[in-house]
Amino acid sequence: MNRTRPIIVIAIAAAAVVIAGSIAIGVTTMSRSDATTPLPTNAVKMTLPGLAAASGAPELTSIRLLHPRPGEVRQAAGPFDDRLALDGLAFDGTTVRGSLRVTSDVSAVLDLEVIAGFYDAGGAFLGIERFVYHAVHDGPTDPVTGTPVESIPFQATVPAEFAGRTASASVGVPVLVNE
């Protein structure tokens, strides 16, 4: 009887120690696998210090610097001139027309804004009108092949306040997004 008691004590103690150790290891293992940081709500920078909020529609200062001759349509410099061509520019005294062709790699035109400038017979700047294109889906496609078209026709009419005084026009592109 006395000989078996130490063995029982040892067995109970050993079991307790093993269980305790297992719990300790298990807890730390569990805490390691669950050591996920709650999704930080402040991970997104919702404000950008130093950035002035945009005001008004896009402008092209180059339009005010041009002085086209009567009947002429000039292209005003813009940020995307190296990736587009303006074809068939024409001005009939009331409306300036043309089409924009993307000359760089393109799969679809998503957004386009064309600013038309109007001038009097002396080449003095009068004002502007805009043509805005926004693709609802992936942009216009060829009805036969289904592939994106890379030429978008545009037109802008002389505002009523300048009617009868407008002799020439310019066009420039401040917004162009092609996928």
């Binding site: 940020p79 804004e113 805005v132 926004h134 917004v175």
Partner: peptide, 13 residues
């Protein structure tokens, strides 16, 4: 809208 790429803001984009 993915078209709002810059460099300038526009309502449509």
């Amino acid at each position: 809208a993915r078209g709002c790429q810059g460099p300038v803001y526009s309502d449509a984009a």
